[in-house]
Design a protein around this nucleic acid. Structure first.
Lengths: 217, 217
DNA sequence: AATGCAATGTTAGCATCTCTAACATAAGTT
DNA sequence: AACTTATGTTAGAGATGCTAACATTGCATT
């Protein structure tokens, strides 16, 4: 019985002319669509100039609707930040895969992903890291960040032929992180116009990796 | 005549029970006081949560008053950012003074000032560098930043016994800047809790300087 | 299948914020 | 003393974050 009604529903969902999902009172997918709108707006206007109202307009919904899905504006933004964190992590593991374990190329790849993400999604990137305020709310965010950093530390350790993270690895990973983080922000904040930015980013990454994690372990 | 009235005024200003300057219709010093309030609020609430209204409350003035002195909210914030830029530069020149020209200690001192400023005035620091939006408005700000960067480049050049900036110096200054910039943001954004942060900041600064601008030129 | 509940929308409205317009007053000039 | 300019004030428009009260829908239980 239930299965039959399910089939009916499926049939309706797929064959009927799709009420565009907007004409219906219940949206069906509002939460996801609001997050999507939020992310888009964060990129377009920057995290500071994001407004819930505008996200509502985009989702074709009243301005009170989000509050059935999110506690407040902050929670909407954090959702986008979290998604960004995960996306960045995925890109990292994908990008180092082709390179042999313990190779410097892996370190370079990590840095490349970091900066590419920052320049490709500056709004989300800013959101992820410059969470001014809220103090304790971003526990999950912090956890994700910690995991990512430990991942980097592990890669550095492997470069030194270790299977566990030593103090030296921690230190070096930290140097690397600070560098790419700073480079990312200087880039997206437009401080590297003109002659300040080295022309070849890849070259810079290799150089910094060489200075901190030399190929000859 | 006029000089007499001036004297009278001075006498009033100094000997009469000071109408606290708030009881008077004309404030006398509103612009400066608004900037002061803005800076304080930027530190307390963060640049994003700063509101003109609150600055007005602090200055004891109506919410429309600022618009006789500033074009809009953005201009108030920019004023604070500019002042921060200048303050940071002054600290830099002061801190390198004791060290001999061309010494690595000078480079370390520059980094120390950069990070100290960021941690001491995180609100203003954020304002100075993560100016999301406005595009062309921050021309002056950009100019100040450029000057500072050139100053750093020159210091690096001196470390190599040069009196003019070479490409190598540009490159190295850029690496140094990226590093301290990233370190600053990671610190004020609280990403360096627990074991991630090396215990001794000074040591880290020396180490990174050694890696990029070795003492033995 | 009918009914009831929980989920998820909507409209109205409050408090706050930025910024403008019109007006008021102080200060300096002629 | 009268005029002008600078610098305040009050009133209010338009946007925003969020809440309260109400409406509609979907699902579950009967």
């Amino acid at each position: 019985m239930t299965s039959l009604t399910f089939f009916e529903k499926d049939w309706i969902m797929e064959n009927v002319k799709e009420p565009t999902r907007r004409e219906r009172y219940h949206h069906g997918d509002l939460r996801a669509q609001l997050i999507e709108a939020t992310q888009a707006l964060v990129e377009e206007k920057g995290p500071d100039n994001f407004s819930v109202s505008e996200a509502c307009r985009r989702a074709g919904v009243s301005t009170a609707a989000p509050y059935k899905h999110f506690k407040d504006k902050t929670e909407m933004l954090r959702e986008v930040a979290m998604a960004g964190m995960i996306r960045q992590s995925q890109q990292m593991v994908a990008e180092i895969a082709p390179h042999p374990e313990g190779s410097q190329a892996r370190i370079v790849a990590l840095g490349r992903v970091y900066i590419r993400f920052a320049t490709t999604e500056p709004g989300v990137f800013r959101l992820m890291f410059t969470w001014s305020g809220d103090e304790e709310a971003d526990e999950q965010l912090q956890t994700l960040g910690d995991q990512k950093f430990e991942f980097v530390q592990m890669e550095v350790a492997k470069c030194h032929g270790r299977t566990e993270i030593a103090d030296e690895d921690r230190q070096k990973a930290f140097l690397l992180w600070s560098f790419v983080h700073g480079l990312s922000f200087l880039t997206i904040d437009g401080k590297l116009a003109d002659n300040k930015m080295p022309n070849d980013l890849e070259h810079v990454l290799v150089e910094i990796a060489e200075r901190i994690v030399p190929e000859a372990s």
